[in-house]
Nucleic acid binder design. Structure first.
Lengths: 126, 126
DNA sequence: GCAAATAACTTTACTATACAAAGTACACGT
DNA sequence: ACGTGTACTTTGTATAGTAAAGTTATTTGC
């Protein structure tokens, strides 16, 4: 069988560290809506990041093979364009699926505990 | 006006660092379904964490005032019970709302980019 | 009744990394 | 030629997640 999630339903193994980070989450959700890619300065604005931070996070995403970085010149100035790779798109879809599970888990649990009947809780401590 | 999210729609300022962490996310989603609280060993199993990790993360959550820790003895052994505080429940609801927004943002963006018509993208680079 | 094992944690140490601050390079206006 | 602005990169630091070792007490095997 699979991993420990058999016994540990709240382990959330699938939450990829590379995506699971405020800044990078912003970058990737920005990119997913722009298949042609986005410029460094665009991302900076959209995600409210400083130059240094953005640079570093893009590097992490690039090293992981999740975004492709195209460096060139435009209007005689350096111009960096980033776009999601196919792998990035796929992996992010997986990540999102886990996120949705988290949200659903929480919603279900919160709902169940509205009716505080001790016999009705799904899981029983040993 | 509010914060930078005016100009930075993908900043995700609301993603509280204390919750936004694999292990703690597991702990809290476990706890939210058990209003009476859970024992240390139960959490350990449910979240697939080592003793040391769990101890540390509980401490963080406790220091932030998000979970209450009751230490006592049961069957002549130390027995720690953790439960969400009201603050914790409220803050986590806020966090979840942002998470949902992330998921929705991504879903919308992915859908929009299915039709790769450059005139239809919502945001236009400067 | 003593040693070894187990339970239930806590503390310490290491490692990774997010973020900020400073640095580099080039172009443009004046 | 000189400062100003754009577009990044590099370096440094402080936080924090994780693993390993330590602590205390309580059963269990011999």
């Amino acid at each position: 069988m699979a991993n420990r999630s058999e016994n540990a339903p709240f382990a959330y193994d699938g939450l990829d560290r590379v995506f699971h980070e405020k800044a990078r989450l912003g970058i990737v959700t920005s990119l997913i809506g722009h298949p042609k890619g986005l410029a460094f300065s665009d991302l900076k604005q959209l995600c409210g990041l400083t130059d240094g931070n953005l640079s570093r996070h893009i590097q992490v995403l690039q090293d992981a093979g999740l975004v492709a970085v195209h460096k060139g010149y435009e209007r005689n100035r350096p111009h960096t364009r980033c776009e999601l790779t196919d792998l990035g798109r796929k992996r992010f879809a997986d990540y999102l699926a886990v996120l949705e599970k988290v949200v659903k888990n929480a919603a279900d649990a919160a709902e169940r505990s509205e009716e505080p009947d001790p016999d009705k809780v799904g899981w029983k401590p040993a």
